[in-house]
Amino acid sequence: MLAAKEEQLREFQEEMTTLKENLLADEKETCCLPQRSIAKDTCRLHRENDQIMCNMEQWAKEQKVANEKLGNKLREQVKYIAKLTGEKESILLYTRIKKDGHSALPHTLSVLGMDC
């Protein structure tokens, strides 16, 4: 999805560059064209430029929302991994104590929050 949006941004930038080049070319030809035609072309170019800018702003907003969602998912996964790691360590400790002998088991269980 990000690659597609980046490609869309590149297309918008290329389109804007083309429009700027057209605008410069139109300005160079002003001495040869009637004034009414120049005004229409300039207005059209401004409208097209405004549309491109609106499209780019919309794309940026969509990217912001997508990045926020991705960030939230990553934070949730980090919390879940930390929880699983804690549980794994508790199980390993419990297993080691059980293997070594039952004498320290009640104390260890209370430390782990598993009172007998």
Rank of each mutant, 00 (worst) to 15 (best):
M1W: 05
L2C: 00
L2G: 08
L2I: 05
L2V: 03
A4T: 08
E6I: 07
E7P: 00
E7G: 03
E7R: 14
Q8S: 11
Q8W: 02
L9M: 15
L9Y: 05
F12A: 05
M16S: 12
M16Q: 13
T18K: 09
T18A: 14
T18Q: 06
E21T: 14
E21D: 15
N22A: 05
N22V: 00
L23K: 11
L24T: 10
L24I: 14
L24P: 02
A25C: 03
A25D: 10
D26W: 07
E27G: 00
K28E: 12
E29K: 10
C31D: 05
C31S: 07
L33R: 10
L33P: 01
Q35C: 02
Q35S: 06
R36N: 14
S37D: 14
I38R: 03
K40V: 15
D41F: 06
D41A: 13
C43E: 12
R44E: 11
R44I: 01
L45F: 12
L45W: 08
L45G: 10
L45H: 11
L45S: 09
H46V: 15
E48G: 01
E48V: 01
N49A: 11
N49V: 10
D50L: 07
Q51A: 09
I52M: 04
N55K: 13
N55P: 00
M56W: 01
M56Q: 15
M56L: 06
Q58R: 14
Q58P: 00
W59L: 13
A60M: 05
K61S: 12
K64V: 03
K64R: 14
K64S: 08
V65M: 00
A66L: 11
N67L: 08
K69A: 03
K69Q: 13
L70T: 08
L70F: 11
G71A: 11
N72M: 06
K73L: 13
L74Y: 04
L74T: 05
R75M: 03
R75I: 01
Q77F: 11
Q77Y: 12
V78W: 06
Y80P: 00
Y80Q: 12
Y80M: 00
K83C: 02
L84P: 02
L84E: 15
T85H: 02
G86W: 01
G86P: 01
E87S: 01
E87M: 04
K88Q: 13
K88W: 07
K88M: 09
E89G: 00
E89N: 13
S90W: 00
I91M: 04
L93N: 02
Y94G: 01
T95A: 11
R96I: 06
D100L: 07
G101R: 00
G101V: 08
S103R: 10
S103K: 10
A104C: 04
L105R: 03
P106N: 06
H107V: 11
S110E: 15
S110M: 03
V111Y: 04
G113F: 07
M114C: 07
C116E: 06
C116S: 05
